[in-house]
Write a protein that binds this DNA or RNA. Sequence first.
DNA 1: GCCGTTTTCGGCCCGACTGTTTTCAGTCG
Length: 579
Amino acid sequence: MNNQQISKIFNNMADLLDLKGENVFRVRAYRRAAESMGSLAKEVSLLAPDELGAIPGIGKDLAGKILEFIQTGEIAHYEALKREIPEGVLELLEIQGLGPKTAMRLFKEKNVKSIDELEALIQSGQLAGMPKIQKKTEENILKGLERRRRGTERRPLGQVLPAAEAIVRRIKENGAVDRILLAGSLRRRKDDVKDADILTTSRDPQRVMEVFVGMPQVERVLSRGLTKSSVILQDGLEVDLRVVEKDSFGAALQYFTGSKAHNIKLREMAVRAGLKINEYGIFTIAEEKRLGGREEEEIYAVLGLPFIPPELREDRGEIEAALDNRLPNLVKLEDIKGDLHVHSNWSDGSHDLISLVRGAEEKGYRYIAVTDHTKGLGVAHGLDEKRLREQIKAIDGANKKLRDLLILRGAEVDIRADGSLDLTDDILARLDIVIASVHSGFKQSESQMTGRILSAIRHPYVSIIGHPTGRIIGEREPYPVDMEAVLKEAAHYGVAMEINAYPFRLDLNDHFIKMAKDLGVPLAVNTDAHVISHFDFMSYGISNARRGWLEARDLLNTLETVPLRRKLKACTDRKKNGT
DNA sequence: GCCGTTTTCGGCCCGACTGTTTTCAGTCG
């Protein structure tokens, strides 16, 4: 993945140039280019040289550096910068509250080249007393060091969202607030988040802030003002609360929802139109006349744009799409007609078939697919051919008694290291739906892994690839796989890619979802439920699907039962006929 | 360093809070 490497290098170069005190706009250009490279759908080495310049934020100079990296494996300018400033100095920037100016002074004046050396300097008492660094600053740096030690890694949405919603409820109950909403990456439903942003209006900001910083789960107050306060919770999560005027709520919501890249683009548009956007509203520059700000829609409307759903606000083409009036009509939770990946107590799930049916009925589903693990996954009591035959019989029996809901006969088979499946074709032929997933051999090379998944896609009975990249947020990196090749093959055979809604997975991620959609690959949002309460995870999968620009028609499980079964069968027929 | 239905040069999003200073730089989002 050259893209990620180049993105990392550009980010490092931005930091190094920042440390050197270079022009801030030059630094920003590198950061923007890094962002652009990181979210590029296509592998950059496959682009023609003149296509490089078309990437937003990449001009003549940076295109040259990208080419240089592809051809030689390094960038001379970057190597030179690293000789000038040791890489350990970059590490100092990871400390919250310590920025480029201080880091550079530490390096130049005290020869600090790493976090360890900074800690030694503090130990020796030589930090406080440097000009502009008094006791308070030292304390803040110590706190930043401690916070870094405890880890501030990004957390799964499914962990932070419930915690943040609980805080919102608490403030609502005690804080004399008027309107209150989550903002930031939580509102955009990003799959992993760094902190929680909450926005409110209130006639008594003092009181709201008191309630906020006084919550029992607050470990430390980072800052406290009348319009903004920040705290750190016992579990290390940072939460920011802002109180704004009623008339500014929409503008503030728009501003604090981000993303940064989306907002910068909007503001640039505004400036070109003689307007100014800040968190208080949208104004004409000439007369400072206020044109809106109470509602978020007003900001977009004044710019001549329809409302853009928060999940799309990543500067991945949504503003251009809005201008052309071709924003997607995003899929909603209510569009979902069933769950195609559910485990029962026949393998490692907790409930029997009837309980699962009850749970699904409560969601108003038309069908669920019971897709237990198979024998390759011994730890999960995977089913062998004999037990799967028994389960099929049990499902057929249960279906006879059901009127409004159908249980689809399924399995989540293992894609073995050589690409074969762990059950024989004659039993798979009796199923309505087969999910094929990788559960082992994560250390394979990219070409091996890709080949393995391609074989599964070509298998006549496979209709869905489960959690296609295998990542566990904050725990396990995705295994290396050429996703573009996988998606093209899936599009060719009509095999669906799963959007696994399990909060720690969210796999495919938003990025690959969009790529899949653009290539015409069908998708399915599944919860991978092992307990009935996991059915609730569907909303996380839907958020992810929305971030991938999906409409209801892009998903298998928005179909009614009959067309769904027809589509699954068509996929198998196509492969059997070798087309 | 990028970029252009105002521009190929001169702009580049905008403001809050903190700490160390007496008017502001640094950091963050």
